[in-house]
Computed example of a mutant assay.
Amino acid sequence: MSDLRHSPLHERHVALDATMAPFGGWTMPISYPDGGVVAEHTAVREAVGVFDVSHLGTAVISGPGAAAFVNRCLTNNLDRIEAGQAQYTLCCADDGGVLDDLIVYRVTDDELLIMPNAANAAVVLGRLTEAAPDGVRVTDRHAELAVLAVQGPRSPEVLDELGLPSELDYMAFRDVGDVRVCRTGYTGEHGYELVVDAAAAPGLWDRLLAAATPLGGRACGLGARDTLRTEAGYPLHGQDLSPEISPVQAGCGWAVGWRKPEFWGRSVLVAERENGPARRLRGLRATGRGVPRPGMAVLAGDAEIGHVTSGTFSPTLRTGIALALLDASSGVSDGDPVRVDVRGRPLDCVVAKPPFVPSRVR
């Protein structure tokens, strides 16, 4: 733990007696003692939760034509959004594998803020730096900025209490003082992510929790963030997306600008899309007692047809759920029965299209 990076809010988490654990090279809160993951998960679904996600990378890409440059690199089409909007996109290798999935904030045509995953930030920034034309700069601001997430149906009330803008369109952002407020999140609920200078983060955290607590809200850790995103059917890089799992296989083709003439991995991905992927990411919902976990085999009859990439117990549905990479040749589709091998015991499941709970992000 001594070699791990600390969030600007580390002392706040320690004071709350959070369970801390390594994540992406950082030590981050997994849960808090008053109720744990299930209570935190439920607070987000029913009221509001406040997360520290400062492990997420932050970098500014600036200079003449910065947006056009990034649009030639990442999969999604930045021309679809305007200044003041954000976009989910993918950084792919030349062979079509996913090096990372990230959010891009379009500030102007000549300035972007990108938010990669913690473990992949160095790879993404290194690749962009190497490819950048003269005059375009890639500036790592990971140590200078903090990121907080306010998620749940009562999240607008929290922002209103702090005088921050809550009436934002989905994936739109606005700067107010030293806080950038964006209507994004990773929970499947209406929510926001706040980017702020690291030095100002502890004070903002305190104010957010003070506003959230009377509404039934609470501090939430990365354990609840994982169960929430799995219920929402959101992929996690390193499990559901990876250098070995392409956007086509993962069902993320919607985040690819197929008509763009250029982006990393384009030729391979276009061919895979046209030919059809050999495997596809599907949702599974347990109908028997048990919880599917990553790496467990999925079977149809006696034949192994794939494996679980993400699996957990759903606090909302009170049953096991999973994302699984299944052979396209197996022919299974939504509603079909399959089994997961849970340490030698078969767990009956049904193929189900995510999200597992209704999305309320918009």
Rank of each mutant, 00 (worst) to 15 (best):
S2D: 12
L4Y: 10
R5A: 15
H10Y: 15
H13L: 03
T19L: 15
M20L: 15
A21D: 03
G25I: 08
P29M: 09
I30H: 05
Y32P: 06
D34V: 05
G36P: 01
A39C: 08
T42I: 03
T42A: 13
A43K: 09
V48W: 05
V50M: 04
S54K: 07
G57T: 08
G57I: 10
F69M: 11
F69Q: 12
V70C: 14
G84H: 04
T89A: 07
T89S: 12
D94S: 13
D94E: 14
G97K: 09
L99V: 10
E111W: 00
P116N: 12
A118H: 05
A118P: 06
A122D: 15
V123N: 11
G126M: 14
G126F: 13
T139Q: 15
D140P: 07
A143H: 11
V147C: 12
Q151A: 02
Q151P: 04
G152I: 03
P153E: 02
S155L: 09
P156C: 10
D160P: 04
E167Y: 01
D169A: 14
Y170Q: 06
G177D: 03
G177L: 06
V181L: 08
Y186Q: 07
T187S: 15
G188T: 06
E189H: 09
G191M: 08
Y192D: 07
E193F: 01
L194E: 01
V195A: 05
A199Y: 01
G203P: 03
W205M: 06
D206A: 14
A212Q: 11
P214M: 10
L215C: 03
G217W: 07
G217F: 05
L222C: 09
A224H: 06
L228P: 09
L228E: 12
R229D: 14
R229Q: 15
E231S: 13
Q239E: 14
D240P: 13
L241I: 13
S242C: 03
P243E: 05
P243M: 10
I245K: 11
Q249Y: 00
W254L: 13
R259P: 00
E262T: 12
R266Y: 09
V268L: 01
L269A: 12
L269H: 13
A271E: 15
N275W: 02
G276H: 14
A286R: 07
T287H: 06
G288R: 05
G295D: 00
M296S: 02
A300D: 05
G301H: 02
E304C: 08
I305G: 02
V308C: 05
G311S: 03
T312C: 14
A322Q: 11
L323N: 08
A324K: 05
S330I: 01
G331V: 00
V332T: 05
S333N: 00
V338I: 12
R339S: 12
V340D: 01
G344C: 09
L347E: 01
C349D: 10
C349P: 13
V351G: 03
V351T: 02
